[in-house]
Write a protein that binds this DNA or RNA. Structure first.
Lengths: 233, 233
DNA sequence: AATACACGTTTCAATAAGTGAAACGCAGTG
DNA sequence: CACTGCGTTTCACTTATTGAAACGTGTATT
């Protein structure tokens, strides 16, 4: 049995995704975006609406509903890596003034893998990078993407200048665990998340980048230690 | 046309909700919890899995997936009330040391209405109330519930001692807008959210409660002003 | 004004799609 | 060894989903 997916549900979830991506969507737009007939889109959106996953605003457009907010928040709170990483984020922000993030790998089938920002702490500089939580970035060409795919060089961190966004420099380090075969031998490493700093490029220079890079790598290691303590004893 | 809901989608969403509520669920548990046959539950969970809404962990149990995290975070970031309220939360925490929250009304059909915590700022006391984001509380017997249903007394805030949780006192104030008829006459008020402080009861006394209550009410009013500025000009 | 267009909505017949009982292999338990 | 519960697969039944078409309404276009 290869992939016995129920089409109806797939379509509904696609619709839900469209609405969340766009922030708000009219019925016709939603139908076009998902290539569904208006009647089908309407029926599915009504189902999503009656279950609280979307809602209709005053203008009659569909918006993300509170249920999705609730489930997302619950899911986030069950991601133990976030609570483990929060102290590290705080320390990074305190030391650098720049915004700091936690990323994980989000594996959606077609279109390639992406990285997903699941937590952040805002920097203190008045010009700062902000609010990427919930956003995905391509694995190619982003610092966190490189780190998540295991392409971290000796230095322990990756720097990408003007990768995803212009005028922005990203510095990322992996939180990686050793994987073991049943007999106990080490088989490789698995990156469970990445810690990253995203800052305006004009504020960076080689020295600062090295300082931040080493800090992020060190904090990533701290998070790893906390993670292992939670999962081993 | 009364309620043309698609059964398949409803079931899938129900399944998704179960998994998120429980944190992790085995197939059999999920099937029982939703009263579905094992084969149907399996098929739907597989669909949810292939779209990233749930995932199977190492033990083969279903857990909330990253897609739900992503959409939830996106939806949260589109809730403008949160960003408007964050400065107020900060100020409340700074002034009181207690955890502060934003609640909205989550209207799920059966089982009655509930309030939903959609944002919070942690208090600074070492003993503090923490991490209710994503959680729902009954409208009856909770301070934020009372406030959300419009039952705010003259004082402008509601206090509930040991309502939802033992040894916890909650103080809530409404963020309410006037509603108007087409002709411009005021028809009533609509509570769009609530601001609340949740603290260990042993730390409270009548005087402190009054201070906090007035602060929360004042900050709620600040948020309202910011909200109206954003939606009027 | 008259026309054309796009949107949200409803209806309905065709059939594609979802359903659950049953059967299977497996692992743990008494 | 028999027994129970789990995850999984298969398959015939039929129900629930589907999309074209038609409608009313409001908004551009002429």
């Amino acid at each position: 049995m290869a992939e016995p997916s129920t089409r109806t549900v797939e379509r509904a979830l696609q619709l839900l995704g469209s609405v969340c991506d766009a922030g708000f969507l009219t019925l016709a737009d939603a139908a076009r975006g998902t290539e569904l007939s208006a009647s089908t889109a309407l029926r599915l959106l009504r189902t999503l609406e009656s279950t609280g996953f979307v809602r209709k605003d005053d203008e009659g457009a569909y918006r993300p509903g509170l249920r999705i907010v609730q489930l997302g928040a619950q899911a986030l709170s069950h991601e133990s890596i976030i609570s483990l990483a929060e102290p590290a984020l705080d320390r990074i922000v305190e030391a650098t003034g720049e915004s700091a993030y936690v990323n994980v790998q989000a594996h959606h089938g077609p279109g390639g893998d992406h990285g997903l920002y699941i937590a952040m702490r805002e920097g203190t500089h008045s010009v700062r990078h902000s609010s990427w939580v919930g956003r995905t970035v391509p694995m190619e060409g982003s610092a966190s993407g490189a780190v998540l795919s295991g392409k971290t060089p000796q230095a322990g961190y990756v720097v990408v200048d003007r990768g995803v966004e212009a005028d922005v420099t990203a510095i990322a380090a992996p939180i990686a665990v050793q994987t073991h075969a049943p007999d106990g031998t080490t088989t490789g490493t698995r990156v469970i998340a990445a810690l990253s700093v995203v800052a305006p490029s004009y504020r960076m220079n080689p020295e600062k980048i090295r300082t931040i890079g080493e800090l992020v790598a060190a904090e990533a290691h701290n998070v790893l230690t906390a993670y292992q303590q939670e999962n081993q004893p």
